[in-house]
């Protein structure tokens, strides 16, 4: 056995490598069906990373929404529009420059961030210990995340649910398929 390098580190490096490879493939491939599928792969790899970070609930949200539903919706949109990316004749110098500068700024700012997966990150040192100490007494559910989301932050979650509802209402109003389909069916009959 190797000493010093944990299995988790190897898994993380592998996942990040695949993530970068998928991203490069998404940029290079022109066929949008492949792009949609690759973005599903990207989400699945991110889900793997969330598991490595012990965030199982985030992981299966990402797997179900990112890899499942949004891929299906992208394919649906593709079927309504076009299946191949348009090639432009414009010079790519300016977009590449903007991307490189933005990327460099982001990488530069990560140097100040706490190390990947560290317990000393600021997010773990402000309100989190307080919630962890109080939840068993106040709420009494073993899953502290649920206690925070559904009880301490019940207002926020109500807002989120309303946002999801509003989004669906907007999509259904725009695509308007619910009633039209019924008409078609009655026409056939």
């Amino acid at each position: 056995m190797m000493t010093g390098i944990s299995l988790a580190a190897i898994v993380n490096v592998l996942l990040f490598t695949f993530l970068v490879m998928t991203a490069i493939a998404i940029v290079r491939v022109r066929h949008l069906f492949a792009v949609a599928m690759l973005s599903g792969v990207f989400s699945l790899l991110s889900a793997g990373l969330f598991v490595a970070l012990d965030a199982v609930d985030v992981a299966f949200t990402e797997a179900a929404v990112g890899a499942g539903i949004s891929t299906v919706l992208m394919l649906g949109t593709m079927a309504l529009t076009v299946t191949r990316e348009k090639t432009t004749k414009r010079s790519p110098v300016l977009p590449v420059f903007v991307c490189v500068v933005t990327g460099a700024a982001l990488v530069y700012s990560t140097l100040d961030m706490p190390a990947f997966g560290t317990a000393q990150a600021p997010i773990h040192e402000h309100v989190a210990p307080d919630y962890i100490a109080r939840t068993p007494d106040d709420i009494g559910v073993p899953n502290i995340v649920t206690g925070i989301l559904a009880s301490y932050r019940g207002y926020d979650t109500l807002g989120e649910t309303t946002v999801i509802f509003t989004a669906a209402v907007a999509v259904i109003l725009l695509l308007g398929s619910f009633s039209r389909k019924k008409q078609k069916r009655t026409d056939k009959e």
Binding site: L73, T77, F178
Partner: peptide, 10 residues
């Protein structure tokens, strides 16, 4: 619902 909205137009 969103899936049906997309898919039934496709």
């Amino acid at each position: 619902g969103i899936f049906v909205a997309f898919a039934s137009r496709t």
